[in-house]
Design a protein around this nucleic acid. Structure first.
Lengths: 203, 203
DNA sequence: ATTTGGTTTAACTATTTGGTTGATAAATAT
DNA sequence: ATATTTATCAACCAAATAGTTAAACCAAAT
């Protein structure tokens, strides 16, 4: 069973809205374009979602959830830090490769309206770093890992995973890689990012 | 002598446009808001820059140049890879801290219109990686560094430098850091990012 | 068959917005 | 001084756009 939600009008709208908002952003998106892509009348958008803002929020919350759910699970399972990092980078990069507009969409919109993260925090929740940080401290103390701040390591991991997608147009141009070569490069990162990190922190 | 360009109307416009475009992006920016911020009549924007698109391009090219000029210089000086990385990360992060909207602006607009990078390439030029890559290969061959692909290392460096600014709202929320603590965290990264990278690649 | 409720549409509205214009003021040249 | 060019402004315009409305449609209940 593939995830082909009932093809109700409401779902057609959400799907089209996702596609348009993620490519154009809140400010660049047009309600008419969403209606056209869904193949329905523009009035339907308001009938089901009231306003552009609310339709946008529905799309954004979906997007945010899909990005952070995996993260939370991996962060809180019972593997070692090294295994967590290998798992997470592999899964995270694989996931983003199937939704390459997601990081750019999420970070762009959060920068446009930073307060919105409070809304998200309340309604969806954010990944919790406490277990990860504690575990890291333990592995540092017992000599498996070099000393490193948990927040900094977390930032580094997300940075190495997500940045190639945020910076794709620039990276492609600077490194002279076409779409295919770039795909290959991303494929490599699924394992090489973890190696890069582990190399840095392992004693 | 601080860089207080002649306060001609043309420069007032460019300064205000920079401020508004970098905060709101092309789609979110309003010509009237730019005029208000510059304290002049909206017609002046068109008198000096013809259209929103051309004004935007003037701002974007300036922004892009300011981000890549340093990079090019450091990449092509005669220091070792390790020194290059320490220099570059320190300078790059310091620079962005003074212009925190820049990365978000540049990457957002390049994602909105990826073809624009060709225009930039022709008119401004892009950093050249060849010397860096060759030098890296040499240092790998002579046993100073572990094997790593030049493009991948380059991406990692930029990622670790720029991402904290792109993801600031999310990072602040997930790590529970307020503005001041976040500033401190960035201050740390000026040296810690280089350590993190060098640790990973040094034999 | 008819009523009832939700669904869909075309046409419309009010507002925003990039861009223009024609008159006026201020420099600059003659 | 006077003509000419450059700069500035208030008012205006046309297109785009989020949102509304009133009528039509349709399926299920009576």
């Amino acid at each position: 069973m593939t995830k082909e939600k009932n093809i109700t009008t409401e779902n057609l709208i959400l799907k089209a809205a996702k596609s348009v908002f993620q490519r154009k952003g809140m400010d660049g998106a047009r309600m008419q374009e969403i209606a056209d892509e869904a193949g329905i009348n523009k009035a339907m958008l308001h009938y089901y979602y009231r306003s552009k803002q609310l339709l946008f929020e529905a799309v954004f919350k979906n997007a945010f959830k899909s990005m952070t759910t995996h993260l939370g699970e991996i962060l809180n399972d019972d593997l070692s830090i090294e295994e967590k990092i290998r798992n997470f980078t592999f899964n995270h990069i694989s996931f983003i490769m199937e939704h390459p507009y997601l990081p750019s969409f999420i970070f762009q919109e959060l920068n446009r309206n930073p307060e919105f993260i409070l809304n998200i925090k309340k309604e969806i929740g954010l990944p919790n770093l406490e277990k990860f940080k504690k575990q890291l401290d333990d592995e540092v103390k017992n000599g498996h890992l070099k000393p490193i701040n948990g927040e900094q390591l977390f930032i580094n991991i997300i940075a190495l995973n997500a940045f190639p997608f945020l910076g794709a147009p620039l990276i492609k141009a600077v490194t002279n890689t076409e779409d295919l070569a770039f795909e290959k490069l991303l494929e490599n990162r699924k394992t090489e990012v973890a190696n890069f990190i582990i190399n840095s922190i392992k004693v």
